[in-house]
């Protein structure tokens, strides 16, 4: 009689599948993104373009169709989309429609060359959702009115006291200089960057998912050249 030694190919395949499944589940359990891991390795090996995807993007050259107000309406006269720029005045908020259908909960929101010309400041909504015209989520605020940059939480359309504040020196010049502003949202940790430099980090776990937008208030006026939401870079 022929004696079979060792395992069959099917058994080896089964073992490999089980090991791979266990590994993936362990990673998921600890909140590790497999996609992010591939990207990290790719970037480390010099293949950054492999992960250079963009979730949402607007260079403001095609009007205001990508944006909606709290009530889902098209942005009003406070928001002017002209010549590849978005300029805003007054007291209002708009939300990026693309981000409202976006799956990832971790991302980086980018405002390109935003220039505050006057007023009390502007904010970037993230992990936010609007229900019945009321927003729940977070904002990062570039806030001369407070003399600080802050992270703030929103509940049922009401703004709460900031949960993270970086006081800015009183002689800081808030106005008239285009800046690239980013908010990196990763798990329960949020980091704001101005011109690539981290300026404020905060943690909160109230809202695990949600979309992005822009707000302005009081007598603010600003213009910006682009808006984007990208995967986080390590």
């Amino acid at each position: 009689m022929k004696q079979f030694k060792g395992q069959s190919l099917a058994e080896y395949v089964l073992l490999l599948v089980l090991v791979a499944s266990a590994a993936i589940l362990v990673l998921r359990l600890f909140g590790f993104s497999l996609r992010q891991a591939y990207c990290d390795v790719g970037i480390a090996l010099g293949f950054a373009q492999a992960c250079e995807t963009t979730y949402c993007e607007d260079d403001f050259s095609s009007g205001k169709d990508s944006w909606a107000t709290n009530n889902g309406d098209s942005p009003t006269g406070n928001w002017q989309f002209n010549d590849g720029q978005l300029c805003a005045t007054g007291n209002s908020a708009i939300y990026n429609k693309c981000s409202q259908s976006m799956t990832p909960s971790d991302y980086t929101v980018k405002l390109d060359s935003i220039n505050l010309e006057r007023g009390d400041g502007y904010g970037i909504y993230f992990r936010s959702d609007v229900v019945d015209g009321k927003v729940n989520g977070y904002t990062f605020q570039y806030d001369p009115g407070l003399g600080a940059i802050v992270f703030r939480k929103w509940v049922d359309g009401r703004e709460l006291s900031p949960f993270a504040v970086h006081r800015v020196p009183s002689n800081y010049d808030w106005y008239g200089k285009p800046q690239d502003v980013e908010v990196k949202v990763s798990g329960d940790t949020f980091t704001a960057y101005i011109n690539g430099e981290p300026v404020l980090t905060a943690q909160d776990s109230t809202y695990p998912t949600g979309s992005a937008g822009i707000r302005t208030w009081d007598n603010t006026k600003f213009c910006m050249d682009g808006f984007g939401i990208t995967p986080n870079q390590p």
């Binding site: 058994e11 089964l14 073992l15 089980l18 266990a22 589940l25 362990v26 359990l29």
Partner: peptide
């Protein structure tokens, strides 16, 4: 029957353990 080889026993024990581990992980997720 030829006695089961030690290697086969270890292999099957390992497979069973992995299947159990996956079940636990699924429940944890």
């Amino acid at each position: 029957q030829p006695p089961a080889r030690r290697g086969n026993k270890v292999f099957r024990y390992l497979t069973a353990c992995l299947a159990f581990l996956i079940l636990v992980l699924l429940l944890s997720n």
